[in-house]
Amino acid sequence: MAAETRTDETDFGEVSRLKDRVFESVTLAAALFGIVTLAVLLVYVTVDAVGWLDWQFLTSPPHPLAEEAGIFPALVGSIVLMVLIALVTFPLGVGAAIYLEEYASDGRLTRFIQLNIANLAGVPSVVYGLLGLGLFVQLLSFGYGTLLVAAFTVSLLILPIVIIAAQEAIRSVPDSLRQASYGMGATKRQTIRNVVLPRSLPGIMTGTILALGRAIGETAPLIMIGVPTTVFGVPNGLFAKFSAMPMQIYTWSSYPDTAFQYGVVSAGVVTLLVVLLSINSIAILIRNKYQTERS
């Protein structure tokens, strides 16, 4: 690949060396631009959250006075929602990936499904919100803004990502293992169950968990299915109204008082990012554990 050329690079005169150096600096600056900007913003928001992000904030319901405001219902709502989404997407995503990788022939239908999945991954999340509104709220009458509707809607949204990740993991299982299994007289089902799935499971889990990280930050679909502006208690059933952290942050972000702008909302943002970071760390831990095991 590109890396190989680096070693046998020619060292012709210094004529255009300067231009090369300048260009390298420019590309490096570009590569760092986004990261540095984000890092600065994160430092700002973390500094602003200091003094606001405390036990009281994590355990209280929202309140119009900044000192008494808390994120508890939204925090619980987000976690419950994520568990439900995992339960829906994991079996469906893995099932679809198994079909596409292990069963499907390389025909028209398969290519169509594949293209379709790639396209679904690019549909704006607000459109999935309309799907949830039209299908689950209006047609199936699951109630506007309920936990169940939100779980189904966001599940459909991240399903393509889960399928693609699971496919990659399954594809990375060497064919020699499958052939060995068949050689022992195993059927296709037995091979999938005993060889393919166990070996690709860490990859699948990593992909699913990363997709959940995307799910926990989604706001637009929740607004479209009518999740209430503010919820003061924790959900007590699948048909209960609930709130989620990004939803609460959206509500708070329109509060003009500086105590909210540079205090409560910052604390909410940091809470959301910490939960997101923990989810992603779990995914990375799983990946690293199995990567070391195999060496």
């Binding site: 469906l92 893995v94 499904i113 379709n116 679904l120 549909v123 309309l130």
Partner: peptide, 24 residues
């Protein structure tokens, strides 16, 4: 039967697209 179950999972993606189009 297994093949059929997995196929249905894969088909769900097409159903999703259809559902989006029909709803809209």
């Amino acid at each position: 039967a297994y093949r059929a179950v997995f196929f249905v999972c894969a088909l769900l993606s097409i159903l999703t697209t259809l559902a989006i189009v029909l709803t809209l």
